[in-house]
Design a protein around this nucleic acid. Structure first.
Lengths: 236, 236
DNA sequence: GCCCGTTCCTGACAAATATCATATTCCCCA
DNA sequence: TGGGGAATATGATATTTGTCAGGAACGGGC
């Protein structure tokens, strides 16, 4: 499946200042650098499966990953978009349960794996790391609760606009300053918004007709940011 | 507003074995017991407001509290139901932001307040407490993500049944073994489900007609649990 | 380059849900 | 113990959103 390769050093990782591990003490970082295994996953490959038992946490060295629930009727709900420097799989590890989401690479990605015991061990010893962990969890929880409110109260149109902004915040734009730098299928966008694929397609067409965005295959260019923000109707 | 009264001792708190603080080291528990202030809030009183800055965490000694977002159009979305032994307000404290939810007493409640500095301080020193904190956060996050999926994918009918089960899990039943031991308005139930009040009322009537529940004012009796579970259509 | 399966798109329709209107009941308290 | 405001209930209707169907465009592999 995944292809292991020569481990990139944590000390030179381009995300060492933004990832959670920037808070870890040096000696602990050394231990992690020694023990971790880095692998390359191709676009579409699954990193871990909903229902499986976790054996460690994953830290994204490079790439983009989606975390998704598979709903009762098989429809997927995308829960989180993961980028370089982010960790994933920590929730299952901390609550000592099975994965509740499946992680799938949105593009070719290199991902480091840190064994469970080591991670938990360091978490016990390193107060500032564990504090950072709590900060991340709190912030994810805050975002999730906001999403619940919006899902319950906002129409699809607003949620789609909000989702476009969210994708931009997460993965940023290409050099042209307009194009979202990730390629998602219409279905994936719908599963992020929480609506039917056809609805997402229809509304994207409307956004395009209104001049807010430009579509070219899976490329989405945000042309009229103020209007997108207005459409998202965010007050908070 | 709230009425302070003679502090109940943490060491005799009826929830000392189930609350997060059961994991705290004894010396830290002593410190908390010394510093905390316990107050009584009447039904309907607000413990803290969305948008305010947190000065500590609250630990519920006795009572029932709802945590809710106020959506853009003013409609409330209930995010969590809090019971004795639970803590609240930790998210804002840990991520160092303002409260994103308002806490309102659902019935007369006695609630202890633990000052920010002390709590954060102890969290730094007490690895098992902070691990427990992470466990709680992870579990809340898991629940929130499941709720997102259900909001996006399940019809109101199923979500209402699920909500009834959730209320039962949280607050339990009265001695008769059937009546939910919390009184919520129809509007509050709707705001928990994430639907219009009228829809919630209508569906509750249907559930009653189908013999699943019995309604008597704000009392809700769960008569046919298997059928409620079936209606909730939970697979996970 | 061409084929075939997949994704994308659009229209028509159906279903779910919200909204509005209006009784009716409850319950607080003067 | 009534009276009044709020909560509950229910019907009618509008709106939103999902579902189904069919065609167009795309893209990867040979």
């Amino acid at each position: 499946m995944a292809t292991p390769f020569h481990n990139p050093s944590c000390h030179h990782c381009k995300d060492r200042f933004s990832s959670i591990f920037c808070k870890a003490e040096q000696c602990n970082l050394d231990q992690i650098a020694d023990a971790k295994v880095c692998s390359v996953y191709r676009k579409g490959q699954v990193i871990f499966h909903e229902g499986a038992y976790p054996f460690g946490v994953y830290c994204v060295n490079d790439g983009k990953i989606k975390l998704s629930h598979s709903g009762d009727d098989g429809r997927e709900q995308i829960i989180r978009l993961v980028k370089a420097g982010d960790i994933m799989g920590y929730k299952a590890l901390l609550s000592n349960e099975r994965y509740t989401a499946t992680a799938t690479a949105l593009e070719d990605s290199s991902i480091c794996f840190i064994p469970k015991d080591l991670f938990l061990n360091i978490l016990q010893k390193d107060a500032s790391l564990s504090f950072e962990m709590m900060r991340i969890l709190s912030s994810e929880l805050r975002k999730a609760e906001l999403k619940i409110t919006h899902l319950a109260q906002k129409p699809v149109r607003e949620r789609l606009a909000e989702t476009l902004l969210f994708i931009k915040e997460t993965y940023g734009l290409e050099e042209d300053g307009h194009t979202l730098s990730v390629r998602l299928s219409r279905e994936e966008i719908a599963n992020l918004v929480g609506t039917a694929t056809e609805s997402a397609i229809r509304l994207l067409s409307e956004f395009k007709k209104d001049g807010m965005i430009e579509l070219e295959g899976k490329k989405i260019r945000l042309l009229d940011m103020p209007e997108i923000v207005r459409t998202a109707n965010l007050q908070e």
